[in-house]
Computed example of a mutant assay.
Amino acid sequence: MQKYLVVFAAVVAFVAAESVLVEDEEGRQFYLTPVSSRQRRQADGPKVFGQGGGNGQSQGGFVKLQNPNGSGGSLGYGHANGFGHVVSADARVPVWSNKNRFGESTLNVGGGATQKFGGYGGNMNLDKRVGLNFNHRW
């Protein structure tokens, strides 16, 4: 369980990392990101989504961060009386980027995990997932 907490903390720290704003010789401003591409300051910034709620029987919610290049992450929690708790975490990070006259393309690699604790059926095995995401902005 400890290694999952370390991985979870690393994913949250990486997703929460901010871009660095720099200025070139001509006075134009850009964000430096972990990817080799640069985004102009006027470009759309990261978006944060969230949802939550509850009643007498169940409760839960999630928070999601999505960058314009498709990278980001999410955290979720759910609980229902008698069925236990469900916790999930997902993240995507850019591994390749290309910007040309047709737009900007980014390849993201991601992973996540979901765990159910207690309730009907008891604890369930950790559900792990890995995937690729290709994003193109015109």
Score class of each variant (00 low, 15 high):
Ser74Thr: 07
Val93Met: 12
Ser37Val: 07
Glu104Gln: 14
Ala113Leu: 13
Glu23Thr: 14
Gly76Arg: 00
Arg101Pro: 01
Gly70Phe: 02
Val15Arg: 00
Gly84Asn: 05
Gly84Pro: 03
Asn69Pro: 01
Arg92Ala: 14
Val11Tyr: 01
Leu132Trp: 04
Arg41Leu: 15
Arg101Tyr: 05
Lys47Thr: 13
Val35His: 06
Gly111Cys: 07
Gln2Glu: 12
Val63Ala: 04
Gly110His: 13
Trp96Pro: 00
Glu18Gln: 15
Leu132Ile: 06
Ala80Tyr: 01
Gly112Ala: 14
Gly70Lys: 06
Val20Phe: 08
Gly118Gln: 04
Val130Glu: 08
Asp90Lys: 04
Gly121Ala: 03
Ala113Trp: 10
Asn67Cys: 04
Met1Thr: 15
Gly53Glu: 08
Gln29Cys: 15
Pro34Ala: 12
Asp90Glu: 09
Ala13Thr: 06
Phe83Val: 06
Met124Phe: 04
Pro68Phe: 01
Gly54Asp: 08
Asn133Glu: 11
Asp44Val: 12
Tyr4Cys: 08
Gln39Ala: 09
Val86Gly: 05
Ser97Val: 03
Pro94Cys: 12
Ser74Leu: 10
Arg92Leu: 14
Gly112Gln: 11
Gly50Tyr: 10
Val109Ala: 13
Gly118His: 02
Phe117Cys: 08
Gly76His: 03
His85Lys: 11
Ala9Phe: 09
Phe14Gln: 12
Gly53Pro: 08
Pro94Gly: 09
Ser74Cys: 06
Asn55Trp: 02
Arg40Leu: 10
